Computed example of a mutant assay.
Amino acid sequence: MQATEILEKLVGFRSVVGLPNDDIVAWIRGYLENHGIAVDVLPGPEGDRSNIFATIGPKEARGYILSGHMDVVPAAEAGWTSDPFCLRADAGRLHGRGATDMKGFLAAVLAAVPRLAARPLRQPLHLAFSYDEEAGCRGVPHMIARLPELCARPLGAIVGEPSGLRAIRAHKGKAAARLTVKGRSGHSSRPDQGLNAVHAVTGVLACAVAEADRLARGPFEHVFEPPYSSLQIGTVKGGQAVNIIPETSEAEFEARAISGIDPAELLAPVREAAEALSKRGFEVEWQELSSYPALSLGPDAPLARLLEALTGLESLPAVSYGTEAGLFQRAGIDAIICGPGEIGRAHKPDEFIHVDELLACQAMIERIGENCRA
């Protein structure tokens, strides 16, 4: 199958983050097995979605991981001019949810499989396709934990997030959490008989704003924009009507950390302020939504040099978005970002990838295969 045909098939699966993914997993597994490649389907603890791991070449040798996620963000936003889950071709563009982020990379990898499998590889290529990346990289840690039983320690991981097919060596880490505060409802004329959850949460919000201001003063890592760690309040909810004491309030927080800083630790002062509300009679729930570490790969790392040679482009020091690459690096595997398309097209109506971008990525992957035969 051509890369465009494979992408059409992949986009047709509604593999929205947080939902079962048996259909796309079964199709990819069947495709790989039809080319003589053994596949490990690795169910996650949710029970209704799985990762995929497959190896082309000798498992006992050290090789490279080609990493991508099968899930996509929802496509309910206004502005789509065609069915988001039906690939549409238009003047060299292929439109559909996930065309860029990141089923285009998966299609390029799968299109390269027949050529990769045609001749023996001295170093293996591992295909590592994950679930629920869009919910904060929730699926891939379960696969990484099983790598020691699946293959020899890899030489590196290439994460195919959209980068204009240019290698990228760093991104910030991220953590997100949801706070729910429950007080006691009542008539607004008797505030003395209730516990106002919205009033209570304002102190936590003020703490978050103060922490955000503090982080903006450094430390700095100037490869990033902005060059410091950040914290923000993303959502705030609460109350039913102006004359009812609000019983519950909810807020969501996100922190993004420069290299060497645990993003979850940036939220610690906010969590402490929230949990202090329990001393005032409120019920407090702090739920960690996601967390992944920063990526930081040196410009002279062998993996960076390899990707520069394969793409013919100098690697970029950093991007603002996050990926699964930091999780591979934390597991002791060098990682880098390099995939087709542009991140600015992702998560938008009429998301698209150019046909020539798709084919260029397939050609790059085939060059990786040639390198593994040398």
Rank of each mutant, 00 (worst) to 15 (best):
K9C: 13
A128V: 00
R49W: 07
L106K: 03
A75S: 04
G298D: 10
R62M: 07
P43A: 02
D40C: 15
A176S: 12
A301C: 10
A167I: 08
G98V: 02
I233Q: 15
R169H: 07
P227K: 04
C86W: 00
A78E: 15
D90R: 08
V319G: 02
A216D: 05
G322C: 06
G57P: 00
L297M: 04
C338D: 12
C361T: 02
D262L: 04
T100R: 15
L110F: 01
A200H: 02
Q193A: 15
P191N: 09
A264I: 01
G369F: 15
R367F: 15
I233D: 14
L327F: 00
F328H: 04
L303E: 04
I65F: 09
Q287I: 00
P317Q: 05
H347M: 02
N51Q: 08
A75D: 11
A325F: 01
L42I: 13
L150S: 07
D350Q: 12
V25W: 03
A176D: 12
P349Q: 04
P154S: 09
S315E: 03
E357I: 05
L127N: 06
L327S: 02
A212S: 07
S259I: 03
L289T: 01
G369C: 03
A273C: 06
L306K: 10
N243V: 15
P148D: 10
A99Q: 11
G57E: 12
I24P: 01
D22A: 13
T55N: 09
G104Q: 05
M1F: 15
N21A: 00
